[in-house]
Simulated assay, not measured.
Amino acid sequence: MGHHTFDADRADKLEDARQRYRHLSAEELLWALSADGDDTVADLGSGTGFYTDDVAPSVGRVYAVDIQEAMHDYYREKGVPNNVDLVTSGIDDLPLETDSLDAAFSTMTYHEFASELAMRELSRVLDEQGTLVVVDWAATGSGDHGPPVDERFSATEAADALRQHGFEIKFEAVRPETFLLVANAE
């Protein structure tokens, strides 16, 4: 399943607000994070910073984590907010302190990093009761948008993986092409 990365040469496609907000609005993401002005948050697979920019004004600090330096280059050119730190890393080996995050979110990237190591790493960096928001392409979708269906996970598979790593699912929604999970670290 999955574990590929989005082609940085197509980064402009990640800035299409009409398409992006069709699957997840800024308001819904902020609701799911329930972050306050002092929180430290990580955007897991931040790409061009599209959703990072939506979250940054509402929190103290955001780590924009992406494995591709080319995505960070794109974001730098676009303009990175002062409270955003660019982190070039995979999710399975985050250069962040233990319990250093109040929240983390993944928008359409869970299928790219979902692994035993990544789940353990997320458990490590999220503070007790920290929030994890996962929005991704659903295995039940048509495959007309996003990755091929055989590279996707179902909401049930993702929720089970999170539970196995000490997360409690607080909210779950399955849509025609995507799913949304809100979980808390235990």
Rank of each mutant, 00 (worst) to 15 (best):
M1P: 06
M1V: 14
H3Y: 02
H3L: 13
H4K: 07
A8G: 02
A8H: 10
A8W: 13
A11C: 10
L14Q: 12
A17T: 14
A17E: 13
R18H: 08
Q19G: 00
R20N: 01
Y21T: 14
Y21M: 08
R22D: 14
L24R: 07
A26V: 06
E27P: 05
L30I: 06
A32G: 09
A32Y: 07
D36N: 12
G37S: 12
V41S: 03
A42Y: 05
D43Y: 03
D43Q: 07
D43H: 04
S46V: 01
S46N: 04
G47A: 01
F50R: 07
Y51L: 04
T52W: 09
D53P: 02
D53K: 11
D53E: 15
D53T: 13
D54C: 15
A56Y: 12
A56R: 07
S58A: 07
S58L: 00
V59C: 01
G60E: 03
R61L: 15
R61P: 10
V62W: 05
Y63W: 15
A64E: 05
A64M: 03
V65G: 03
E69Q: 10
A70D: 15
M71P: 00
H72I: 13
H72R: 04
D73T: 14
R76D: 11
R76V: 09
E77R: 15
K78C: 01
V80L: 05
P81N: 04
N82R: 09
N83A: 12
V84R: 11
D85N: 03
S89K: 02
S89L: 01
G90P: 00
G90W: 12
L94T: 02
P95Y: 02
P95S: 07
L96V: 08
L96A: 09
E97C: 02
T98C: 00
D99C: 00
L101F: 07
L101R: 13
A103H: 03
A103F: 02
A104F: 06
A104N: 07
F105Y: 14
S106Y: 12
T107D: 03
M108C: 10
M108I: 09
T109D: 10
T109P: 00
Y110I: 03
E112V: 00
A114M: 06
A114W: 01
A114P: 01
S115V: 10
S115N: 04
R120P: 08
R124W: 11
L126A: 08
D127K: 09
Q129R: 15
G130D: 06
L132F: 04
L132V: 02
V133K: 10
V134L: 08
V134Q: 08
V135F: 02
V135S: 06
V135K: 08
D136M: 05
W137I: 06
W137C: 04
W137E: 08
A138V: 11
A138H: 12
A138I: 04
A139G: 15
A139F: 07
A139H: 09
T140N: 08
G141S: 15
S142W: 06
G143Q: 11
G146C: 10
P147M: 09
P147I: 13
P147Y: 11
P148A: 13
V149I: 15
V149P: 14
R152C: 12
T156S: 08
E157M: 00
L162P: 01
L162N: 04
R163G: 10
Q164T: 12
Q164I: 01
I169K: 12
V174I: 14
E177A: 09
L180F: 11
L181K: 05
L181G: 11
L181E: 06
V182R: 13
V182M: 01
V182P: 02
N184A: 09
